[in-house]
């Protein structure tokens, strides 16, 4: 992809991420946990990680987090999201580098990591180690939402590849 095409593609991805962020804020169910989210934008980030590389994916993710929190959140939610978003993207990138791990594993690990980092940041910000007790259940929850997003990424990746949109030929993360 040339530079202009890539800029347009990433811009579209960012817009789609923002829509997905908004969409999931509309979901009426929270499974009894305040602030519960599926992490829908994550499946796009995963797709970008595997097709456009780490730099593109993390820039889109950071921009998404900044914009979403400026529009709908506050400084505290920005700190949570930024720390969790950056670290889980790093972890997903590292896992995708392994040939034996695909979208599913990377996404599941990313989801779990995202939730654990959020709890850890909350524990640090509120200087309260008792919050860390929430780690195991939130980890499992992140695992399930992560698997869900991983399946979405996989399905999208296959369709995009057939259409020849946005996927590199000879992509080494191809499943």
């Amino acid at each position: 992809m040339n530079r202009a095409k890539k800029a347009a593609y990433l811009g579209l991805s960012l817009a789609l991420c923002l829509i997905l962020s908004y969409l999931e804020s509309l979901l009426p169910f929270q499974f009894g946990i305040v602030g519960f989210r599926i992490g829908l934008p994550n499946f796009l980030i995963l797709l970008l990680l595997s097709t456009q590389g780490f730099g593109s994916a993390i820039s889109v993710n950071i921009l998404r987090i900044l914009i979403v929190n400026l529009l709908f959140g506050n400084i505290i939610s920005l700190a949570f999201s930024l720390a969790a978003g950056v670290l889980s993207t790093l972890l997903m990138f590292a896992l995708l580098k392994l040939r034996s791990v695909g979208f599913l594993g990377a996404s599941a690990a990313g989801g779990a990591c995202h939730n654990v980092v959020q709890v850890a940041v909350a524990a640090i910000l509120f200087k309260n180690t008792a919050l860390l007790k929430l780690c195991p259940p939130l980890m499992l929850l992140g695992l399930f939402t992560g698997i869900f997003c991983g399946i979405l990424s996989y399905l999208c990746h296959n369709r995009l590849e057939k259409l020849g949109i946005g996927t590199k030929a000879g992509n080494r993360n191809k499943i």
Binding site: L95, S100, V101, L104, G105, A108, Y154
Partner: peptide
Amino acid sequence: MVKKGDIAV
């Protein structure tokens, strides 16, 4: 769709 590494992770 599911790879060995996925299950391991």
